[in-house]
Amino acid sequence: MFHPLRVSAVEQLTDDAVAITFAIPPELRETFRHTPGQHVALRRIVGGAEIRRTYSICTAAAGATEQPVVRVGVRLVEGGEFSTYALKELSVGDTVEVMEPMGRFSFEPRPGRFVAIVGGSGITPVLSIAATLLAREPDARFCLIRSDRTAASTMFLDEVADLKDRWPDRFQLVTALSREEQQSGLPSGRLDEERLTGLLPELLPVADVDGWFLCGPFGLVQGAERALHGLGVARTRIHQEIFHVDDGTSTATAPTGPASAAAPAHSTLTATLDGRSGTWPVRDGDSLLETVLRSRSDAPYACKGGVCGTCRAFLVSGEVRMDRNYALEPEETEAGYVLACQSHPLAPEVELDFDR
C-alpha cells in the first residue's frame, strides 16, 4: 500500500545524487518502522502513466520507542524519469507516494563479525545495517569494503566517517576507487573476483565471518560471490542485492523453467492477494504480474525487472518460465517462489499466492 508522505529534507550528496527524507505522521509510525536493509517503492504519475522506483532506506532502524526515519539515496540514472525528477525538481514540502518498507536483504542485529562488499549506491542499505548493528550489539564487528569511481562520486561519505569515529575499534573501512588514485588505501582498480580473492584473506579472517552482504551492480556482486565461494564461504552466509543489471551481460538472465516445455495456446491464472482470489486469462506475451494488474491495481511490484523481489509469489500449481531472476535466493525458488513480473505460463492453468 502507498501512503502520501511529505518531503522533509533534500540533501545533495554528490553532483549526481541526493538523499531524501520523508516526514512520518504519528498514525504511520508503526507502518514505516523498517528492518535494516529494507527498501521502499516511490510512485509518481506522469502524463497518466505510473512510474515506480525502489530505493533502499539508509537510516538505522528505530527502536520500539523511537521515531522511525525514512531516508533514501537517489542517484541520477541517464534517462531515468524518477531520478531526474528527484534531483532537479523535488523540494521540501512536496508530497511523494511511498510504499511500506519491504525486502529480504534485511538483517536482525546479533553478535558476530560481518562484512559488506558494496559498489556505488549499493552503500545505501548496508549503511542502515551497519549503523543499526553497531549501535545495538556491543559484541559485533563490521567491515565495509566499498568501491566507487572517484572520491567525488562517493555517496554518504559523512555518514560512513561518522561510523568510523563512533566505533573505531569495531568498524573497519576499506575503500577502492576505480578511476582515481588514493594517497592511502588500495591502489586504483575494480574489485573483481581475482582481486577480492587475494584481498579478503589479507584484510580479515574469512572463515570467522558470520555474514557477508553484497550489494551494488550485478558484475561486482557476481564477482564477489564467486570469490567467496572460492575461499570456502558457505552459500548460507552470503546475502546479496542487485542494484543495476546490464542486459545481456550475464547468464543469470537465462530463462528458468522446464527446458522442453512450450507455452500453451491458452492459459488462465488464478491469484490470491490480500485474501481475495480471482481468475483471468493470460494474454499472449503478458507476464503473470501484468495479468493480475489488469484487474487488481494493488498487485505488488516496483522494478518489473526481476531485481527488487517485490512481486514474489508462491507457485501453488502449474508451471512457469522466469525470464530473469536477480532477487530470489536458490532456497526460495526451490521452495516454489517465483517473480510474477518475469513469469510466463507453461501450463493451461497456473495458480499464484502473493500472501504466502
Rank of each mutant, 00 (worst) to 15 (best):
F2G: 03
L5W: 06
L5P: 06
R6L: 14
A9G: 06
A9W: 10
A9K: 12
A9Q: 13
V10M: 14
L13Y: 00
D16S: 08
A17R: 12
V18C: 13
A19H: 07
I20H: 09
F22L: 00
P25E: 04
P26R: 13
F32D: 03
Q38I: 08
V40S: 14
L42E: 13
R52W: 12
R53Y: 00
S56E: 09
I57G: 00
I57M: 11
T59M: 10
A64D: 12
T65P: 01
Q67D: 10
V69M: 03
V69E: 07
V69I: 04
E78Y: 07
E78I: 04
E81T: 13
E81I: 09
T84Q: 11
Y85I: 08
A86F: 01
S91M: 10
G93V: 06
E97C: 02
G103V: 06
G103W: 05
S106A: 11
F107Q: 03
E108F: 05
P109K: 02
G112D: 05
V115T: 14
A116V: 05
G122E: 00
I129Y: 09
I129E: 08
T132C: 03
L133Y: 00
R146S: 14
A152Y: 02
A152P: 01
S153A: 14
A161C: 02
D162S: 09
L163P: 06
L163M: 10
D165G: 01
R166Y: 03
W167N: 04
D169Y: 07
V174C: 09
R179S: 06
E180F: 02
E180D: 02
E181T: 05
P187F: 11
S188Y: 05
S188M: 15
G189A: 13
R190G: 08
P201N: 08
L203G: 05
L204F: 14
V206A: 02
L214Y: 04
C215M: 08
C215E: 10
G216K: 04
V221K: 13
A227W: 11
G232I: 00
V233W: 12
T236P: 05
E241S: 06
E241F: 05
F243S: 08
D246Y: 13
S250V: 03
P255H: 01
P255M: 02
A262L: 14
P264S: 10
L269K: 02
A271W: 15
L273S: 11
S277K: 04
D286T: 05
V292G: 08
D298K: 04
D298Y: 04
Y301C: 01
G306R: 12
G306M: 09
T310E: 15
T310L: 12
R312S: 14
A313W: 13
F314K: 14
S317A: 07
G318Y: 07
V320C: 11
R321L: 11
M322K: 07
R324Q: 14
N325C: 07
E329I: 05
P330N: 10
E331R: 12
T333G: 00
A335D: 13
L339C: 07
A340L: 04
P345S: 06
P348K: 03
E349P: 01
V350E: 03
V350C: 01
V350W: 03
F354D: 12
F354C: 11
